[in-house]
Design a binder for these strands. Structure first.
Lengths: 129, 129
DNA sequence: CTACGAACTAGACCCGGCTCTAGGTCAAGA
DNA sequence: TCTTGACCTAGAGCCGGGTCTAGTTCGTAG
């Protein structure tokens, strides 16, 4: 299956601009090949790869690190340990992020509870009047 | 207890620059009062407030929204419903973020597992030789 | 033909959130 | 007295991550 940049944009949710930007940043496992008129032709694998990159970005992996990982994959077999290192390191960061986020959530939930109680008590008084 | 900007920086983890920046952005519940020589004098309440703001920032609340919330608090009683709205909205965003983060985590964990298996199988072969 | 839509490149621009600089005040200690 | 260090203001600069523009080139449809 051959996909144009527009189609890839649709199915990844990235903008056409962002796709070209990612390519320039070296974030494509197997560089996009070009069709007639120099147009980019993507495959399903490209889309799959992009979806993974989107996950990595969403979870806060910086573009340069995604590039490092991508380069390892491009180089092919033999560097699996390095790839594993990158992934594990990121996994740890994500774990920490989740812990932090949970702490924030706890505080917010506590505050929401307080305000709800307060607002309800006001409403109750109003009814009592 | 009176605190200098430097002391507040220490106990919040924010930089002195960031503290002045936050103040300029209107993110201080009760505006910092000034001591001799125009120096900022913070109280424990300021520190507590800042700690909450840090939680809100960490969980992705944009500065302008923290300002809105701060302004409501500054205005005093009577707008608790609006404050509650802001908090609930943010709570929902944080919830979504956590879901996303968990999805990313699942993918990463899956990949880490794959690579570990692979790396181990290689190691086993090496031993077998 | 021509005109539209989708693609191309290179590079400028934007935004949020700080961070840093320049130039100055002030108080305490050597 | 001089120096040091913490503070002050206003405003410039930086970084990450895109986003947008200008000026073209295609291929297809009217």
């Amino acid at each position: 299956m051959q996909l144009s940049i527009g189609q890839v944009a649709e199915r990844t949710g990235l903008s056409v601009h962002a796709l070209r930007f990612y390519e320039k940043e070296g974030i494509l496992a197997h560089q996009v090949h070009r069709g007639p008129g120099g147009r980019r032709v993507y495959t399903q694998q490209d889309v799959d790869w992009l979806r993974m990159c989107i996950m990595l970005r969403m979870s806060g992996m910086p573009v340069p690190e995604i590039r490092r990982y991508t380069e390892l994959v491009r180089q092919g077999d033999g560097n699996e340990l390095q790839r594993l290192d990158i992934l594990k390191e990121h996994q740890e960061r994500v774990r920490q992020q989740m812990v932090q986020l949970q702490e924030c959530m706890d505080l917010i939930t506590y505050k929401v509870g307080k305000y709800e109680d307060y607002v309800n008590s006001i409403a109750a008084k109003a009814v009592g009047q």
